[in-house]
Design a protein around this nucleic acid. Structure first.
Lengths: 164, 164
DNA sequence: GTTGATGCAAACGATTTGCAACTGC
DNA sequence: GCAGTTGCAAATCGTTTGCATCAAC
């Protein structure tokens, strides 16, 4: 699976930790490495299950605590879903999310035209802005196939204007 | 507070319920009315606290159950935050959210230029799209004032391109 | 009168916390 | 060696569920 080494990212990781006065423990290193190799926005629990093979003594609490720490360090993002379980991703290039409201699958996508836009100027008085994401809700192809019913007008996709 | 009557919306509400074969109970009516008048995206618990003055026998479970029902009926939206508590809003005209990462305050804003955009065509193969929202993360003016430190370069706001 | 809705209490699942043992620096 | 970190167990919090009672149609 994740046979990659991620040398440059891991060096950056160590620098961030040391810069913040945090110890580079085995657990932190492995949790971060796992998240670098994961592209499915795993939850704390999913990460834990994957890691316990490599780190038998690891505890779920540590995964939770470590992810919170990483979030403060801006090493990972907590992803917005509407589920009860939070899901995480290591910081990579800026992207947006398609979220299947049926199965919860998250798909990343890029959207340069959006990233180049100016936000409405009215936001200036609301506060200062850290980051802006688009969340597209819908039904993924697999779920649509499963639910194939008499729904004929479900074809609204990308070549029409943004729905609602 | 919410002395408004919302006659037209409430009639629409009754029609939706009856159309779905659901009884128009006192609780459902009042929960919906409260949400119509609330503009702060209350959580189930907050709604419950506001309503128990008017409906002393109301139970929190009913609020949870009723909100889930409303969501299925597309009468309300569950709002994306990163907190543990879900927050709700009655459906109105389409808008987007500014979310203060410090205090959790949600501010609605409108963005016609965005709503008119075409989504990236690559999304067509991912699935069908129901709705698209922009979530702007940042620090609201009040929190920024409280945290006023030596942060000088916090001025990035609306007239610059979308961050990241 | 039926059927679905409510209130209550108990269960549940995700996340957090206090504390003693441990480990990186 | 010390401060920060971990693992464990217990607590917490939001939310859901089973069931008997109750109210809308």
């Amino acid at each position: 699976m994740s046979a990659k080494n991620f040398q440059p990212q891991l060096q950056h990781f160590e620098q961030i930790c040391k810069g913040a006065g945090l110890k580079v423990t085995h657990q932190r290193l492995e949790i971060y490495r796992e998240l670098l190799g994961a592209h499915d926005h795993p939850s704390a629990e999913v990460l834990y299950k994957r890691l316990e093979k490599r780190l038998p003594s690891l505890s779920l609490d540590t995964v939770y605590r470590t992810l919170s720490t990483f979030e403060k360090l801006q090493l990972v993002h907590r992803v917005e879903t509407v589920e009860s379980q939070a899901r995480f991703e290591a910081l990579t290039s800026h992207h947006h999310h398609f979220l299947c409201d049926t199965c919860g699958q998250l798909v990343d996508f890029f959207w340069q035209d959006f990233d180049d836009m100016l936000l409405p100027s009215a936001l200036a008085e609301v506060g200062s802005i850290d980051r802006t994401t688009v969340v597209v809700h819908g039904t993924c192809a697999a779920c649509a196939r499963k639910a194939e019913r008499s729904d004929t007008n479900r074809a609204a996709t990308a070549e029409s204007p943004v729905p609602r």
